[in-house]
C-alpha cells in the first residue's frame, strides 16, 4: 500500500472494535433507544441527514447515546466523476458522527444526467479500477478518514470483465488503504444466485482489511434470492459469520433491517446478540487496541 494513502486516511488498524449493533431506521427509533443496553453502536444512512439542521441535531442526540457510523448510498464510487456538492454534504454528516470511518458501496448509482435509483455493479476492468482508486483517494482526502466499501449484490455480471469483484476489491484496498465493509448476506446471496463457493470468495479477500460486517435477511423471487433486508438472517449467512470469525477477529457488525418490521423488537435484538458472540469470540484472547 502507498504509505501516503495511509497517512491521509489513518491506518485501518487504529479503528477500534465497535461491537454488535443495528442499522438505525426511524421506524425503529423508540425500540432502539429502549434497547440501548443491548446495542453497542448504530449505523445511520447518510442521505437521511443531508437536508436540514434538525436532522443533524437528531444525529448529535443519538451520538450522545451510541457510537454512530455513517453509511452512504449515493456516492457512486465507480462513476467516472464524483459529485463535489454531494461530497461536501456527506462530510458534514461524517464530521457530526465523529466515526472512525465512513462507509459506502462498491457500486455505480449515477451516470451522467441519470440517477439509477439503486446500486448497480461496476465493470471490473483496469480502467474502471484506476478511476475508482482516484475516487476513493479523493473521498478519503475530503473526509479525512478511511472509506470502507461494501460488496453489493448483483443480478448480472457486466461481461468481459478482466477480474472478479473479489480481486477488484482486493486491489482497490491495496492501492488506497481503504477498508472493507463485508456484507455477509450479500456474499451469500451472490454465491447462491451465481453458484460459486462463498468460502473460497471469503478466502480471496484481504480479511485483515475487513473493518465492519453487515448481516440481513432477504427472500426468494422467481428463483432469485433478493437482499431485501426484511427477513431474519438466513442460516447460510450465520455459517459465513462463523467461518469468518474462525479466520479473523470480527470488530464490528451491523444488522440491517429496513422493511417488514417485526411486532417485537426482540426478533432483531436477538440477532444483534447472536452476532455479538462472534465479535467477542477473539476479543478476550486477543484484546484489540494499542
Amino acid at each position: 500500500m502507498n504509505p501516503e494513502n495511509q497517512a491521509t486516511a489513518g491506518p485501518l488498524s487504529s479503528i477500534p472494535a465497535l461491537g454488535s449493533g443495528i442499522g438505525f431506521r426511524r421506524e425503529l427509533k423508540q425500540d432502539i433507544l429502549d434497547a440501548r443496553d443491548e446495542i453497542d453502536f448504530i449505523e445511520v444512512v447518510t442521505e437521511q441527514y443531508l437536508t436540514d439542521s434538525n436532522q443533524l441535531t437528531e444525529l448529535e442526540e443519538l451520538r450522545d447515546i451510541f457510537p454512530i457510523v455513517p453509511h452512504g448510498v449515493r456516492l457512486s464510487i465507480g462513476s467516472a466523476a464524483l459529485d463535489q456538492e454531494y461530497l461536501r454534504a456527506i462530510k458534514l454528516v461524517s464530521d457530526t458522527c465523529r466515526a472512525p470511518y465512513y462507509s459506502e458501496h462498491l457500486a455505480v448509482t449515477r451516470a451522467p444526467g441519470i440517477e439509477i435509483g439503486h446500486l448497480s455493479p461496476l465493470w471490473f476492468t483496469e480502467a474502471v479500477l484506476e478511476q475508482t482508486v482516484n475516487n476513493v483517494l479523493r473521498v478519503q482526502d475530503t473526509l479525512g478518514k478511511p472509506l470502507i466499501l461494501e460488496n453489493i449484490t448483483y443480478l448480472f455480471d457486466i461481461p468481459r470483465a478482466t477480474m472478479t469483484q473479489t480481486e477488484f476489491l482486493g486491489r482497490l484496498v491495496e492501492s488506497t488503504g481503504c477498508g472493507i465493509l463485508l456484507d455477509l448476506t450479500n456474499l451469500y446471496t451472490n454465491a447462491t444466485n451465481h453458484d460459486f463457493d462463498p468460502l473460497a470468495a471469503l478466502d480471496g479477500l484481504p480479511l485483515d482489511k475487513v473493518v465492519q460486517l453487515h448481516l440481513a435477511g432477504g427472500y426468494w423471487s422467481q428463483g432469485i434470492l433478493i437482499d431485501a433486508h426484511c427477513e431474519p438472517v438466513a442460516q447460510g449467512t450465520w455459517a459465513l459469520l462463523e467461518a469468518l470469525a474462525n479466520r479473523v477477529q470480527v470488530k464490528a457488525c451491523i444488522l440491517e433491517h429496513d422493511d417488514n418490521f417485526p411486532d417485537h423488537f426482540s426478533v432483531l435484538s436477538d440477532q444483534v446478540r447472536r452476532a455479538r458472540e462472534f465479535v467477542e469470540r477473539r476479543r478476550v484472547e486477543e484484546p484489540y487496541g494499542p
Binding site: 444512512v45 442521505e47 443531508l50 437536508t51 448510498v73 449515493r74 456538492e85 433486508h229 440491517e256
Partner: peptide, 10 residues
C-alpha cells in the same frame, strides 16, 4: 429543487 437528499435504506 432542494439540496440532494434521499430516504433510501440499504
Amino acid at each position: 429543487e432542494r439540496p440532494t437528499l434521499t430516504r433510501e435504506c440499504k
